[in-house]
């Protein structure tokens, strides 16, 4: 328990305050994209939806998971995994996102809309 206490004693984080900030960010992430659609400014949607998601994740990782109190290698471990995800994205994305290249054309797949029953 002593290591646990040492790990947690440090911080006089006001968890309720962090939770309130997260809720405000949630509201912004819902309202922002509506505003972005209304004003037809896509960057508002991108920032309020995905930018705020990154901020929320950072707040949870730092204040709730106490990642900032762990030895640096724990952070590097997680960042390495994230790097693998980006590497995967970079390697595969051109093939998935492009429909044709210099010497190839992807066969078009027929997309069938699901039947809607109201």
């Amino acid at each position: 328990m002593s290591e646990n206490a040492a790990h947690a004693d440090h911080h006089h984080v006001d968890y309720i305050k962090i939770w309130k900030i997260l809720l405000v960010l949630l509201v912004i992430s819902v309202v922002g994209p509506f505003l972005g659609d209304f004003l037809e400014i896509q960057v508002i949607t991108l920032i309020t939806a995905f930018g705020i998601a990154i901020v929320k994740a950072y707040l949870v990782a730092k204040n709730f998971m106490h990642l900032n109190l762990e030895p640096r290698y724990a952070v590097y471990l997680l960042l390495t995994m994230l790097m693998f995800v980006f590497l995967f994205f970079a390697a595969v994305a051109p093939d998935v996102m492009k429909h044709e290249g210099q010497n190839w054309v992807k066969p078009r797949i027929e997309v069938v809309e699901a039947p809607v029953h109201h």
């Binding site: 471990l77 693998f84 995800v85």
Partner: peptide, 28 residues
């Protein structure tokens, strides 16, 4: 706690791979 961080690290790859694939298809 170290074991839990390892679990979280492996989960990053699982969910990260899934979400990265989704983003690729979504953009394409």
């Amino acid at each position: 706690r170290l074991a839990v961080w390892w679990v979280v690290a492996s989960e990053i790859v699982i969910f990260g791979g899934l979400l990265a694939s989704y983003v690729m298809y979504r953009l394409g």
